[in-house]
């Protein structure tokens, strides 16, 4: 049990997908203009990460490994992610057209989001059990959502700040992202798996 908690914390903070592994940066800058859409993006990524983990694991261990088809990993995983994102897109479009508009291009872009493929490859690469996979996916998704929310919170405050002209827009966002990544380096001292 303790090991699983450490796995969760490790995935969420120490090896945060956005701020330590630097995967999936695209929506990190694109959809963090306001808290609400950042939270929704976190939710969408959480769903895709969880289901990807849960589908990829049996696929790898019960289909690809026994047949000696390890080389199909990337193609098969991308296929699964694409299908899941498609499903998610239909669902969001039906349930919340406003959210669908807010996500814009970033929703289909989850398909090519390296955070998701990264998770799938890490899960099989580290040789996790199914329970570990679940916890790892949950932790990673929580860390992702946390970083998104922090970024969105800071950027909302930045709206009222007097940013020098040369730094306005993307420049200041990249600076913030860099400083946050530095801060997250501090979690390295937690020394978990």
């Amino acid at each position: 049990m303790g090991e699983l908690i450490m796995l969760f914390v490790g995935a969420a903070l120490v090896n945060n997908f956005l701020l330590s592994r630097f995967l999936g940066i695209c929506p990190f800058l694109g959809v963090t203009r306001e808290l609400k859409s950042a939270l929704s993006m976190g939710g969408a990524v959480t769903f895709v990460m969880l289901v990807t983990g849960l589908v990829v694991w049996p696929l790898q261990h019960y289909v690809l490994d026994p047949l000696g088809l390890g080389f199909l990993q990337t193609v098969a995983f991308i296929l699964i992610i694409a299908v899941l994102v498609q499903l998610l897109e239909m669902f969001i479009r039906k349930m919340s057209p406003a959210l669908y508009e807010a996500f814009g291009i970033y929703l289909p872009l989850i398909t090519t989001n390296c955070a998701i493929l990264g998770l799938a490859l890490l899960v099989v690469g580290e040789g996790f059990t199914l329970a570990q996979t679940l916890i790892f996916a949950l932790g990673s998704a929580a860390g992702y959502t946390l970083a998104m929310l922090m970024m969105a919170g800071i950027r909302q405050e930045m709206e009222f700040a007097d940013v020098p002209q040369a730094f306005q827009g993307t420049a200041i966002s990249l600076l913030i992202a860099g400083l946050m990544a530095l801060a997250f380096l501090g979690f390295g001292g937690l020394n978990v798996a």
Binding site: L64, L67, G68, L69, F71, V75, A76, L79
Partner: peptide, 14 residues
């Protein structure tokens, strides 16, 4: 044979 199984597996998944 591994090419065939690879194709078949991807086909079935698809």
């Amino acid at each position: 044979s591994s090419m065939v199984t690879a194709g078949a597996v991807m086909g079935v998944i698809g």
